[in-house]
């Protein structure tokens, strides 16, 4: 089956291992352009591994193995330079991780700088633009030279989002982006996710059912390395086809 025209990422028969442990079992799924897809499931179900396969971070582990196909705009990511893949597919991590030795400005600019952009004006523009898109500009515009780590946890996470936006990716992966934050900061990040989908395709890993319900258009429910159910969030939440999904959504398992 060929990918639909609006399919940004198509995953076919994806298997992944850590050593002898199989973390993902035969995953098939398509991610639509300019939507938010939530990868939902309890911890240890393979959902983080899944998104780390998409931008080829998984294979960096010495004991990692991967089989199957991942297509980005119809082209196999495994035939592309991994650096190219990661330029198109950005990532925001569970714990806010701004580069500790760099200023707020440098944290946002570093991706472009290390890819050869020298023009100071262009960098200034991208930094401002990215920080605005990450809803952080007003809070930091007067202290761009302060260390990134001087910000609060929620601000740091938005800084990491700005950092990911600055290199102008097409897809942004979020690995449980709010699990290390307080509830108020978490709401800000969620609002931001919804704003982002106009320009980017967003994939978010979460174990928080309410969060998946609030932000996502599509939801994929993972259980023990398998994709149990995938569909429009509203449909899956209202009318789960699988018993496992229903059990998870109602809190009977997890």
């Amino acid at each position: 089956m060929a990918g639909h025209a609006t399919d940004k990422i198509v995953v076919r028969n994806l298997n992944a291992w850590y050593g002898d442990f199989q973390a993902l079992k035969n995953i098939n799924l398509s991610i639509k352009k300019n939507t938010i897809t939530a990868i939902l499931g309890p911890s240890g179900c393979g959902k983080s591994t899944f998104i780390r396969c998409l931008n080829r971070l998984h294979e960096l582990r010495s004991d990692a193995k991967i089989e199957g196909e991942i297509l980005l705009d119809g082209k196999s990511v495994f035939n592309m330079d991994p650096v190219e893949v990661r330029r198109k597919i950005g990532m925001v991590f569970q714990r806010p991780n701004p580069f500790p030795t760099m200023s707020i400005y440098d944290n946002v600019a570093i991706g472009l700088k290390l890819n050869g952009v020298r023009d100071k004006k262009a960098l200034d523009r991208v930094v401002e633009d990215s920080l605005k898109k990450a809803a952080l500009w007003d809070e930091v515009k007067d202290k761009l030279n302060m260390p990134g780590t001087s910000l609060s946890g929620g601000q740091q996470q938005r800084l990491c989002i700005a950092r990911a936006i600055a290199t102008n990716p097409e897809v942004i992966l979020f690995d449980e982006p709010t699990s290390a934050l307080d509830p108020i900061s978490a709401v800000k990040i969620e609002d931001l996710l919804v704003d982002l989908k106009g320009n980017y395709t967003v994939v978010i890993v979460t174990h928080n059912i309410q969060q998946a319900g609030r932000v996502s258009d599509y939801v994929a429910f993972f259980w023990m390395g398998e994709l149990v159910e995938f569909g429009k969030t509203a449909e899956v939440f209202e009318n789960p086809k699988e018993e496992l999904t229903e059990a998870y959504l109602t809190g009977r398992i997890g």
């Binding site: 931008n55 971070l57 960096l60 991994p82 650096v83 190219e84 893949v85 990661r86 330029r87 198109k88 597919i89 950005g90 990532m91 991590f93 569970q94 714990r95 991780n97 580069f99 500790p100 030795t101 760099m102 570093i110 991706g111 290390l114 890819n115 990491c160 950092r163 990911a164 290199t167 990716p169 992966l173």
Partner: peptide, 29 residues
């Protein structure tokens, strides 16, 4: 240096040698 600092660098599409020399080494300096 935490692993996710390296991964954050790589996920920006920065080449490995540059991630090591400009981000990891700087952090560990």
């Amino acid at each position: 240096v935490p692993t996710d600092i390296r991964e954050a660098g790589l996920s920006l599409g920065i080449r490995h040698w540059r991630v090591v020399t400009s981000i990891v080494l700087r952090t560990a300096m």
